[in-house]
Amino acid sequence: MTTATTGEEPMALAAARLRTAGMRVTAQRMALLMAVSESAGHLDADALRERAQRVTGGLSLQATYNVLRALTDAGLVRCTQFPGHPARYEIEHHDNHHHFVCLRCAAIRDVECAVGAAPCLEPQLPEEYDIQEAAVTFWGLCPDCRAVTPAP
């Protein structure tokens, strides 16, 4: 979401998205939604708080987590937790994509749905189960880390 492509101010766009989701518009919510929207990667709460503070001034870490939880619950933000890493946030596109995490540098990259339509996998479960989402994480070495790692 950029102002060059939409012609609107980022805060105004954030406010409109909050209203569309039925949420009360606050400076903290707008600033954090804008920070998530404008981030190129999967940022943790502390990094998003730092970006949002450029707009709001003071913003506690607890307030950051509270707002991120509300944005996640409203379906505007996606929270992904990888073992050994802090929770990461990105704009929710409802595309059920997966992730690759580099074991060395911890870089995170989106991966398209693994197989078929969402939820992308066909688990062997009785038909009474209603599967709505699959979360797959691929672990390995990114191209940069692979280039400096000797082949076995």
Rank of each mutant, 00 (worst) to 15 (best):
S37L: 12
P83W: 15
M30Y: 08
L33V: 05
L61R: 10
L43H: 07
D73Q: 10
C79V: 06
V55Q: 09
R69M: 06
G84C: 08
V67C: 03
F82V: 09
P86I: 09
N66K: 11
Q81I: 11
P83L: 13
A52T: 01
R69N: 15
S39W: 11
L43Y: 06
V67G: 02
L43V: 05
Q53T: 11
V67Q: 03
L48C: 02
L71W: 00
M34I: 04
L71E: 00
R51E: 04
L32K: 00
R51Q: 03
V77N: 00
L32I: 00
T64L: 02
A31V: 01
T56W: 01
T56S: 00
V67S: 01
D44W: 04
D46Q: 10
A40F: 07
T56A: 00
R69Q: 12
R51Y: 03
L71C: 04
H85A: 13
Q81W: 14
F82H: 13
H85Y: 09
A63S: 08
M30C: 11
R49Q: 06
A74E: 01
R78V: 15
Y65W: 14
N66W: 13
G57V: 07
P83Q: 11
L76R: 02
S60D: 05
S39P: 14
R78N: 15
A47L: 10
S37W: 05
N66S: 13
L33S: 01
V55D: 12
N66F: 08
P83I: 14
L71S: 00
T56Q: 01
S39A: 11
